[in-house]
Design a protein around this nucleic acid. Structure first.
Length: 353
DNA sequence: TAGGCCATCTGGTCCT
DNA sequence: AGGACCAGATGGCCTA
């Protein structure tokens, strides 16, 4: 399996990862530059806004030959007055025809820009579908999609480089680095499901489920990136309170076995914390009922669509799955991508074999 | 009401 | 010249 994986995806992933690493290496510099150069407008631009606009007008009306002669005459005798000679493109008089043409050009440019942005958004949608945790109903924001995609590529590259699967803790850490709190929880929740599927498979063989001893200890994926900086963390409860809402078995219990809070003094938690980005409502639904429904539905897709993968536990003890299983197409909502064609399947198989 | 996210418009710049 | 790309401005929508 590993050799097949290597032969199929190694070239692409290495190339992508290399590009991303390059970008990553330049990221700090770019950020610093942006900090010191927040605006592209120079002082000249601010002082003489007409300079640029007249230039634009000139450009936009460049095909207007009929007015050119008049323009030349209009600006021809520049030394006659006391006023200092003006530099730069000569301002042209905007005739009605020119204004009309300018409007038409602007309309066309707007249409092109719209199309361009739509293409960009559709590419982002495609990207959303190939990063971990795709949801039709709870779309990741653009920036989160890009961050997650970057982390995903880096993680895959790391897997290929090492030739072995990382533990879930490491994997989640890689994926969630720099992500906002809701995205982090979404990804972590998906991975938790994946891990549970793995555990369930073992249980189906008659083995007794004993998560703490599992190589993918569900409780133990204590990623450092955001949870620790989260104001929603409730020390001592062993639960992560998202937006003031303590999620059920589906998205809680991300702390070590026993429900104890993590050791903040541990060097493990000195890594990067995700920025204190406010929680976006678009990642969760507006009401608690809706939230429960959606998270149940996520489990539903995962639990009911794969015979033999039914989970003995889940949100609301599987009640949601029972409630929605008939109506929810498999994997149509949030899911990991192990249901797709290889190489995703193979990559995901790292966590199942 | 503030803040986040988004779509759209707009003008500037660069490239072909 | 025209198109692509970019970034700023603006307003709408949604949520806490």
């Amino acid at each position: 399996m590993l050799s097949r994986l290597f032969s199929e995806v190694l070239p692409d992933v290495q190339r992508l990862a290399a590009d991303w690493v390059d970008d990553n290496e330049n990221e700090d510099c770019k950020d610093k530059d942006e900090e010191h150069e927040p605006c592209h407008l120079g002082e000249d631009d601010l002082d003489e806004p007409q300079e640029g606009s007249s230039r634009a007008e000139s450009e936009m009306a460049g095909d207007d030959d009929e007015d050119d002669d008049a323009e030349e005459e209009e600006c021809g005798d520049e030394n006659s007055g006391d006023k200092p000679k003006k530099r730069g493109p000569k301002k042209r008089k905007m005739t009605a025809a020119r204004v009309e043409r300018s409007k038409m050009r602007r309309i066309k440019a707007n249409a092109r820009e719209r199309t361009r942005m739509h293409d960009l958004n559709s590419a982002l949608d495609n990207l959303r579908k190939v990063v971990p945790c795709y949801s039709k109903t709870q779309k990741l924001s653009k920036i989160e999609t890009l961050r997650l995609a970057k982390n995903y590529i880096l993680a895959l590259g790391e897997i290929l480089r090492n030739g072995k699967r990382p533990d879930v803790v490491t994997y989640v850490q890689m994926l969630c680095k720099g992500l906002s709190q809701p995205t982090t929880n979404l990804v972590a929740g998906c991975l938790q499901l994946n891990t549970r599927n793995f555990l369930t498979e073992q249980c189906s063989d008659g083995a007794r489920l004993h998560m703490p001893s599992s190589p993918f200890s569900v409780h133990a994926y204590s990623y450092r990136c955001s949870r620790l900086s989260s104001p929603h963390y409730q020390p001592g409860t062993g639960a992560l309170n998202l937006r003031g809402h303590s999620y059920g078995s589906g998205y809680e219990a991300v702390y070590p076995p026993g429900g104890t809070s993590p050791d903040y003094s541990s060097p493990d938690y000195e890594g990067q914390h995700s920025p204190p980005i406010c929680l976006s409502g678009r990642h969760q639904d507006s009401t608690e009922t809706d939230r429960n429904y959606h998270y149940s539905m996520h489990y539903t897709g995962l639990t009911t669509s794969r015979p033999g993968h039914s989970l003995p536990f889940g949100p609301s003890g599987g009640r949601g799955a029972a409630a929605h299983s008939e109506n929810i197409p498999p994997f149509h909502d949030v899911h990991l991508h192990h249901d797709r064609a290889p190489p995703y399947e193979d990559l995901n198989a790292f966590f199942h074999n």
